[in-house]
Design a binder for these strands. Structure first.
Lengths: 233, 233
DNA sequence: ATATTTTTGGACAGCCTTGTCTAATATGTC
DNA sequence: GACATATTAGACAAGGCTGTCCAAAAATAT
């Protein structure tokens, strides 16, 4: 468990400038590792991007492996924290379910999937996940695993309250996330970001489809969809 | 356009053993680049895995950059070809739409998204896409772009024939793919494969949701879902 | 069987990277 | 101001990787 050192090392933050440099290195490490991959990144790049001498990097994190581990655990923690923050804003007592779900989907995308940290984490996992499975094991169980089941619980409650009609909340939760992610996939591969308007639009489409499948009054939304189409024609 | 050389170089395949080694190197290159990333991979590894001397690799492909480009274009072509092969088996005149769509989804997943080449391509793009956008531009337009619009056209035809009820075939097509991919995401990150049974199950869930949202007789499938649930209880 | 083409192993220079060490400098504390 | 601690630049050895060269061996074609 070589990366435990790195985790514990984060605890002692003596002076002010010390901690600042430490964070700056971590931040730069995330950017560079993400951009260049583990082997492509080198300590000089990271030091330069952190505006710090190479030796300082070694003073703080020991070696490249430990720095990488520290970066991963830091980003993972941040992402998880943000996910649960957003999850707390789930519309439990919706007045307008569609609109509130869309807003929730936008928050989720913008703050967790599409933000800097989310992008970093995805790339780090993609490039090194196969090689360091233990490093990302925590993310896998505490991250998406927990988010999924928490989201599933919210959906189950909505269904119980009569707002949804679903067989299996777990499947519904995962499909909800999949739908919300629809348009993100390709741009994410190339490190591009979606503009806010397209993000909003995608969320709306996703939620509309989700509610067509799982909404309580599906015939109503079917009618509405027909009406909209007729109006456009 | 440094990678054009690599493409054209593929044309002359003089002797038998020559071409065999060439392919073997390409194959090994795909594996190693994918496993280790561009900077992590080295020519000795690839040569060893191709059961060939290092010099032979240089004889065939010039240098690491060109070899990488050749690997990418080869895998891209294979994946595209396979995608359109599967696309040709889309159920245009369905007798049992649900079952035939599920079977189609399984074919798509197994042969295009989840197979070796698909996995390679995804990882290569993920790790190097940001750095070599020109290299993957072809994939982006000829790959998913074409598949999406082809799939959208199929859905539009199904809708016209009265089998589906959809507003926007493009969105439906992308959401279909997103739903089919639901369970693939995480395992794909870690280079794991889904067992056949889970793959089948996921496809079934995806298609069921898709048809609940876009099926012609949605109230019917709603009734059926209710019936199933009652039966289980 | 001979001529041609490919392949091989090994040696090599040049370069980059890691991680250590040092002495000098800066930063902050008392 | 004196002290301790952090930081810096630079030099350094060890090792890895790329890409080239060469001569011998193997495979292939005529």
């Amino acid at each position: 468990m070589f990366f435990m050192d790195a985790i514990n090392a984060t605890d002692r933050l003596p002076t002010r400038g010390h901690a600042a440099k430490r964070l700056s290195i971590l931040e730069a490490g995330a950017r560079v590792f993400c951009r260049e991959g583990y082997s492509g990144a080198n300590i000089d790049m990271i030091a330069a991007e952190a505006a710090v001498s190479r030796q300082t990097v070694y003073n703080h994190y020991g070696d490249k492996d430990k720095l990488f581990a520290a970066v991963v655990t830091e980003i993972t923690q941040r992402c998880n924290a943000r996910s649960f923050e957003v999850l707390a804003t789930f519309p439990d007592q919706p007045e307008n379910l569609e609109n509130e779900l869309i807003a929730f989907a936008v928050r989720l995308t913008r703050n967790c999937l599409c933000d800097e940290d989310g992008k970093y984490l995805r790339k780090l996992i993609q490039s090194e996940g196969e090689r360091h499975p233990q490093l990302f094991a925590g993310w896998r169980t505490d991250g998406p695993g927990k988010v999924w089941s928490a989201l599933a619980a919210r959906f189950a409650r909505l269904a119980y309250a009569g707002h949804l009609d679903l067989d299996d909340p777990d499947i519904a939760a995962r499909q909800f996330l999949a739908l919300v992610n629809t348009e993100l996939q390709i741009p994410a591969l190339f490190g591009e970001k979606l503009e806010s308007s397209r993000l909003q639009e995608t969320a709306a489409c996703a939620v509309r489809t989700f509610l067509r499948a799982y909404g309580r009054n599906r015939s109503d939304s079917q009618e509405m969809a027909r009406g909209e189409r007729a109006l456009r024609a």
